[in-house]
C-alpha cells in the first residue's frame, strides 16, 4: 500500500473520531473507548476492502456484508458510514436522541448501510455465520465480516458460532477480535482471561492472523490473506488500544461508556484535530 493511501485512510479514521466524539458529546451518551479502538479497522473495511458497496443501493444483494457484533460502537460505525456517503454527516448531531434514526446500538432497518442489528453481546458471529452459509448455498461471491469485542467473546454463543463456522468451512467469513484488553469491570485478564486466544480459535477450526489493529497496511493485508486462504474461516486478532487517539483516554477503562463532557471534550477534540491538521498538512 502506498504511503499516500495510508495517509488517506488515517485522515478518514481521524475525521470519524472527531465526528464520533462530537456525536457522543451532543447526546451526552455513547461509547467512546471501544469506538476509537475499532475505527481504524472500520475505515479499512469501508474504504478499502468491502466490495459492491453502493450508497444508492445499500441492500445490493452482491455486496460484502459487515456485522458490528460489538453493536455499542456506533460512534465509530455511523461516522464511517456517513463519510462513505450512506447518509448526511450532519445527521450525526442527532445520534442517540429521540427524534433521530441513529439509534444507540447498530440498527439495520433505519440506518442506511447497516447490514445487521446488534447490541446484545455475543450474537453477531452467529448472524455472520448465517450470512456466510446463505452465500455458500447461493454460490454467491460476497464475503462476510464480523467484529467482536474482546470482552464479548466471553459469551458462550460466540464459541457455538465458532464451532459451526469450522464445521461448514466458511472461508467466505472473516471474524475480527478488537483486542483492547479492557472491559467494564477491568482488564480482560482480571475479569475473565481470554488467553491463549489464537490457540483457542485455531482449535475451533479457524485460520488465525494476529496484527496491530491500528496499522492500516497490516489490516488490509490481513483481509487479503483471509480471502486467499481456502477451506477455513479466518479470525483476525487485532491488538488495539481502547480510546486510541486521545492520550488521556488510551488504555483507560473509565472511557468505556462515559461521555466526554466539558474540558474533557474540549481537550480530546483539540488533540484529534491537531493530528488531523497534521495529516492534512494544515
Amino acid at each position: 500500500m502506498e504511503q499516500s493511501r495510508v495517509k488517506e485512510l488515517e485522515t478518514i479514521a481521524y475525521k470519524a473520531r472527531v465526528l464520533g466524539l462530537d456525536a457522543i458529546n451532543k447526546a451526552a451518551s455513547g461509547h467512546v473507548g471501544g469506538a476509537f479502538s475499532v475505527v481504524d479497522i472500520l475505515t479499512v473495511l469501508y474504504f478499502n476492502t468491502l466490495r459492491n458497496i453502493d450508497v444508492n443501493n445499500p441492500k445490493n444483494p452482491a455486496r460484502d456484508r459487515f456485522v458490528l457484533s460489538k453493536g455499542h460502537c456506533t460512534a465509530a460505525l455511523y461516522p464511517i458510514l456517513a463519510l462513505r456517503g450512506f447518509f448526511p454527516v450532519e445527521d450525526l448531531a442527532t445520534f442517540r436522541q429521540i427524534d433521530s434514526y441513529l439509534s444507540g446500538h447498530a440498527e439495520m432497518n433505519h440506518v442506511p448501510g447497516v447490514d445487521m442489528s446488534a447490541g446484545s453481546l455475543g450474537q453477531g458471529l452467529s448472524n455472520a455465520v448465517g450470512m456466510a452459509l446463505a452465500g455458500k448455498i447461493d454460490r454467491a461471491k460476497y464475503r462476510v465480516y464480523a467484529i467482536m469485542g474482546d470482552g464479548e467473546i466471553q459469551e458462550g454463543q460466540i464459541w457455538e458460532a465458532a464451532m459451526c463456522a469450522g464445521k461448514y468451512k466458511l472461508d467466505n467469513l472473516v471474524g475480527i477480535v478488537d483486542y483492547n484488553r479492557l472491559q467494564i469491570d477491568g482488564t480482560t485478564a482480571e475479569v475473565m482471561p481470554l488467553e491463549p486466544l489464537a490457540d483457542r480459535w485455531e482449535s475451533f477450526g479457524w485460520h488465525v492472523i494476529e496484527i496491530d489493529g491500528h496499522n492500516y497496511e497490516r489490516i488490509a493485508e490481513a483481509f487479503q490473506a483471509a480471502e486467499n486462504y481456502k477451506g477455513k474461516p479466518t479470525m483476525i486478532i487485532a491488538n488495539t488500544v481502547k480510546g486510541k487517539g486521545v492520550s488521556f483516554m488510551e488504555n483507560n477503562v473509565e472511557w468505556h461508556g462515559h461521555p466526554p463532557m466539558g474540558d474533557d471534550y474540549v481537550n480530546a477534540r483539540a488533540e484529534l484535530v491537531a493530528h488531523l491538521n497534521e495529516l492534512e498538512g494544515k
Partner: peptide, 22 residues
C-alpha cells in the same frame, strides 16, 4: 443445516440467513 446442540447459535444463524434473503 444441523448446528448440533446450539439453540442460541441456531437462531442467530437463522437471523443472518434471513438478512441474506432466506
Amino acid at each position: 443445516i444441523n448446528v448440533g446442540i446450539q439453540e442460541c447459535n441456531m437462531v442467530g444463524v437463522a437471523a443472518g440467513m434471513a438478512a441474506a434473503g432466506k
